[in-house]
Amino acid sequence: MIPFNFDYFKPETLEEALKIYSSEWKLGKKVIYLSGGTEVITFARGGKMTFDSVIDLKGIPECTMLEMQGDDLVIGAAVTLNRLVESNHFPLLSKTVRTIADHTSRNKITIGGNLMSKLGYREGILPFLITDAIAVVYGPAGTEAMPVDNLAAAELAEGQFLTQVKVAASNLDLPFVSMKRTRSSKVGYPIVSLAALRKEGRIRIAFSGIHEHPFRSAVVEGILNDETIEDQQRIDKAIAKLPTNVTDDFIASKDFRKFVLNKLLTEMNAVWEGSR
């Protein structure tokens, strides 16, 4: 049971959502946007989050669309993870999100909710980071497009919300690997999760579980693409260049995460070798 009350709104347009946000905010209320809502409900129930007003984005067509528009795949922020898996427009994304939570939860969890999660894993962003996807946000300044990387690093401005992610059609069917290791069961937070693809002969790779936020590193990618050194040396060198503050918590120690990453990168190389 959620131990406090709040107002609930379900607008049907972007403009209406923003208007509600502004009017509630002006009354001094704490307003949140809700997409899937699994995290919001869990946090609210556990006393980790409170709010006065909820704006549910699932009634807005821009947020629920999933279709090709010209040269882009347009994914609404309120599209559920299972819908992404079932439609399979973007196989790397399908495979990656299929490892998030459990099947029943994925009927509720949305890609927008995953990308904007307060938890650090946000594995749904990995395929977007390596395809230079564009995040579309709506707010007081209207519609804005930004590199999806910005969602990984920064908070949105007051009143802004994620409406869509766009991926170029040319990036949808590239050869890829998506790997995840958890502590014990198949359902769980990652010790390490990675998504990689090959484009124009080069590996692009992004990680979750290693650091406080999911990331793609030009330095790490540069090393993994350096064919002048042996595979294992390349992996060791890449791991040495990870961002500082590798996550060290109850799920896995810093050293164990690096060990698991080493194994996954070795497996990834074997997959690429096998496909040559």
């Binding site: 609930y8 809502g37 699994t38 549910d56 509720k108």
Partner: peptide, 25 residues
């Protein structure tokens, strides 16, 4: 918390954890 599935119901035929769904939704 959406972890155990004991509260599963169908919403438009899809299984959902009813503990993670507001009635309003």
């Amino acid at each position: 918390n959406g972890d155990c599935g004991a509260c599963t119901v169908l919403v438009d035929g899809k299984p959902m954890h009813s503990c993670l769904l507001l009635t309003m939704e």
